[in-house]
Design a protein around this nucleic acid. Sequence first.
DNA 1: TTTAATTGATATCAATATAGTATCAGTTAG
DNA 2: CTAACTGATACTATATTGATATCAATTAAA
Lengths: 154, 154
Amino acid sequence: MKVLTKKTDYAIRALLMLGAKRGSYLSAKAIAVEQQMPYQFLRGLLQEMIRHNLIVSKEGVKGGFMLERDPDEIRVRQLIEIFQGAVQVSECVFRKQICANRSRCVLRHEIMRIEEVVNSEFEQVTIGKLLRKLNAGSNMMSALKKEDKTLQEG
Amino acid sequence: MKVLTKKTDYAIRALLMLGAKRGSYLSAKAIAVEQQMPYQFLRGLLQEMIRHNLIVSKEGVKGGFMLERDPDEIRVRQLIEIFQGAVQVSECVFRKQICANRSRCVLRHEIMRIEEVVNSEFEQVTIGKLLRKLNAGSNMMSALKKEDKTLQEG
DNA sequence: TTTAATTGATATCAATATAGTATCAGTTAG
DNA sequence: CTAACTGATACTATATTGATATCAATTAAA
Ligand code: FES
Ligand code: FES
């Protein structure tokens, strides 16, 4: 059971790179090479994020993408919603025709409760938080920038 | 993003029916008709649950399936693991080659933390709990038994 | 002004996972 | 004997995920 798909995974990593270089444009190619993601696939993700106003772009030579929004307001939950659709534990384990009063159904409540827990967990993880943890964690940042090529065997 | 697939969904419902009729055998056909699930599909699920010692079966006329284990020990988490594979938030958002010391990686920790939360939520939901809620909740049980045919428009 | 580096917008494809169907052999109560 | 069952397995269909390809438009800079 995979909770984060490649799309979300790549999107997070791309946003972290953009977040680390705020103010200047970073090309899709640079991100793809750096993070070892398929170029065209990544481009699709970046365009999707533009549509959702997470990033902006500039065309042409020296163009690329830039993070404009506050990284603390970009939540993994939103990324999951964009790339995987909203979290839903299940439509309803006990079909409509079984339960007369859905609002009172304890099972539905149980399931919705878990759904909320999952959502709130992902809500609390933001690009900003991840960035700070990266910066605090010494080598991660340099690894992300690939300045230290010795870190090739994790 | 669908957390419970049809397999898990059907399995839970089948187990609840079996749990409600402990001591006697219930045929796959009876469950399939009752819960409106595809017969052969359900049979596959039941066989899988036998392999995992959740239920037992008897062949031949008047045969069927029976719940032997304590319903309180059948956890939705285990069902998810059986039918969807263990919950994993992501392999590792930041590939091995990026992170020199995986055990210290804060990002990994963040992701594993969420994984644990999700798992523990599903761990807490057992067939037994669901059965009790069903019984407590009046109409749900009768709906499950389809004795009240008026509940057809939830 | 030409060129190369870029994004915008799509179309297509491949791989995998999910959902569902079909078949036949073996078992057993009646 | 037979009909109602499970065991085992092969198959098909559909949806989702992951990835690639193409071409037009834009732009910095040689
Ligand atoms: S059975 Fe669907 S809400 Fe209760
Ligand atoms: S990047 Fe993989 S564990 Fe840190």
